[in-house]
Structure formats: structure tokens, C-alpha cells
Design a protein around this nucleic acid. Structure first.
Lengths: 190, 190
DNA sequence: GTCTATATGTAGATAGAC
DNA sequence: GTCTATCTACATATAGAC
């Protein structure tokens, strides 16, 4: 809990987060994180026993950041429909990153599904959080099939991010974002 | 063009194809391909100068297989709507693999978007082929926004494969396949 | 707590015998 | 065409000085 050590720990996690997103987990080496932070390789093992533990910390950090983002959506809107619309803006807000590297959650999960099962399960946590939050918004809008709708919305977003990054197409993201907002309105407005 | 060598070359490509799909390109080593084929590592360099060239051959092989599959869809149905429905069956036909490893095209493209640009461009070829074929089917159904619809259908499938593999959910794939078939009918039946 | 030096394994790639 | 032995680079991880 020392302030100095926690500062370094956080710097490692933040640098690893960005590198895992832009280059992938397996393609990010300790040397890459060292270069990005200025912290020597050997020092990492004071904070993390293995590379897996860095990933765990990164996913925890992403879940925390996501939680705060969802909380802001709840604070800035009063009903489920408006909150979902705010949430969907994330697509366009991050569109440059999405085109470059896809969705940080989706691509990490897809990468780790081909690897270690424990890492994949860990990486899924961000999806679980999102699915549950979206489900609650649809429920608060009075819809009975809220979990199916949550999966449908997540799938729409994932589909868009995969193709946006594959074809590097900005206009496609904008058009798809509009369609997603229309879909949210269709489902939640009676 | 010798028959012996081509046989070994094809065995390498087929084994690499499966390994790239199940474990990812970067996580597949020459040793893995050697173990799967019984062909010694050093022999690979008689057929391919680099690992990149193996990937190129794998993508070419996938594009060829995909072409044949699309040709079968064209042969077995007479109009665009029915052909698209046949094509969508692929989701359920391959559902065990999809749940385990996602979409072979989508996951490869997502992985390589974070890597070398040339490899990513190569991996996109299968998507380009699919997009164009789907577009032609919508056009033959008399629809003007065929390319947008092609992107929408691809996005639907990609979204389903990402979540199916993330949550390992068979029922979700079945339900989503039905929804996709309904969507194709909605768009193509006036 | 921090950093250097290093251990150990494995990656892609090469040389050259057969 | 096929295979063994090996090169070089770099990966994660450890030991131990400061």
C-alpha cells in the first residue's frame, strides 16, 4: 500500500492495457512494457509474479473503468432507453481506436479463447459486466426478454467493431451507430 | 509442380490452417506444425521462405474453400434470398468450432490488425470475397443498398461468433441463426 | 523497493549432409 | 527433396547487489 510502489504498479497496468489493446496480449513482451514505462523488466516481478497476473490486473482495471463509464451513463440519463443511447455513443467516441484495433474487450476475449482457458474466463468478465448492465436497462424499460436483447445489442456492437477494423471504414461506423440507436429506440419505445 | 512435394506442401497448409484457427497465427510455432504433420521444421523452408508465406498460403486456401462453398450455395438455390439462407446455415453447421474458436476469418483478421499491416491486408481477402458475394445476392433480389446490407449481414454473423465464443453458448447460436434467417427474409421478401 | 545480470527455454531461420 | 544440427534473437522468469 506504499504510495511509491502503487504508482509504479499503476503505470505498468496502464501501459500494459494500451499495449495489450494495440498489439495483443501474446504479442506484448515485458520489454515492450519496460520501454513504455521506463521501468526495468526485472522490477515487474516485484508487483506481479507472472505475465498472467498483469493481464488479471489489466482486466480488473478495464472492468473498473467500464463500471465508472456505465455509472456516468446512469447519472446523465433517467430511463433505460436514454442510458443505452448514451452507452452506444462509445462506438463513435472511440471510433479511431476501434478502426485501428477493434473492441478492447472483444479482441482480447477472442485472442484468449484460443489460448489458456483460465485467461479466457478472466477476459470475459468485462463482457459479463456489460451484458448485465444492458439487461438491467432493458428491464427498466419494461421489456421481458431483456437478456436476449442485451446479447443482441452486444452482438451488434461486436459485429461493427470487427468489420470496422477489418475494412478500416469510418463511414461504416457512423452509419452503424445510427442504425444501433434506431434499433434501441424501436425496442424501447412502444 | 512435383507430386511428392506438393503433397507435403498441402499437408503443411492444412495443418497450419487448423492450428492458426484454433490457437492463432502468432501462437502457432513451426514446431506445432511439425508435430501435427510429422514433417521436420527445417523442411518447411523448402516450400515457404518465411512464416508469412505460410499464412499467405493458408488464406489463399481458405478463400478457395470459401469460393467453393459459395458456388455450392449458388448451385443449390435459384434466387438470392435462398442462397443467403443456405449461406447462413454455415453458422449452425460449424457451431461447435465457432463456440470453441470463433470465426476463422474474423478472428484471424482481428489478430492481424494488431500486427503487421501487410498480413492484415492479406487476411482481409476472405472478408472481401464474402462481402462481394453477399452483395450480389442482395442485388439479384432487387435491392438497391446491397453493399450496406452485405456489411450488415457480415456484422450480424461476426457479432454472433464473438459472443458465442466468449460465452460458450450453443443456444445463443441457434437463436441468433433463426433471427438472421428472419432478417434475410424481411429484407428480401417484399 | 529498485535495478543489473543472467538463467532457461523456444521462436524463426539457415547450412549443409544425404 | 528430405532431414539434422545449429545460429541468433528474444521470450518469461530468477538471483542477488544496492
Amino acid at each position: 500500500m506504499g504510495t511509491k510502489g502503487d504508482g509504479n504498479r499503476q503505470r505498468i497496468v496502464e501501459a500494459a492495457d494500451g499495449l495489450f489493446y494495440r498489439h495483443g496480449y501474446n504479442q506484448t513482451s515485458f520489454q515492450d512494457i519496460s520501454d513504455a514505462t521506463g521501468i526495468p523488466r526485472g522490477n515487474f516481478y516485484y508487483y506481479f509474479k507472472t505475465k498472467d497476473e498483469i493481464l488479471e490486473a489489466v482486466v480488473n482495471s478495464r472492468v473498473e473503468g467500464l463500471s465508472e463509464m456505465l455509472s456516468r451513463c446512469e447519472a446523465e440519463a433517467n430511463d433505460g432507453r436514454e442510458r443505452l443511447l448514451l452507452f452506444s455513443n462509445m462506438l463513435e467516441y472511440n471510433r479511431d481506436n476501434v478502426i485501428e484495433s477493434g473492441c478492447p474487450i472483444g479482441t482480447l476475449c477472442s485472442e484468449l479463447a484460443k489460448d489458456d482457458a483460465a485467461l479466457h474466463t478472466k477476459s470475459r468478465q468485462a463482457f459479463v459486466l456489460l451484458r448485465d448492465w444492458i439487461k438491467r436497462q432493458f428491464q427498466s424499460a419494461g421489456l421481458g426478454n431483456a437478456d436476449d436483447l442485451a446479447m443482441d445489442l452486444l452482438a451488434k456492437i461486436q459485429g461493427v467493431t470487427v468489420l470496422a477494423s477489418a475494412f478500416k471504414d469510418i463511414d461504416y461506423v457512423k452509419r452503424s451507430h445510427l442504425e444501433i440507436k434506431n434499433w434501441i429506440n424501436e425496442k424501447t419505445l412502444n
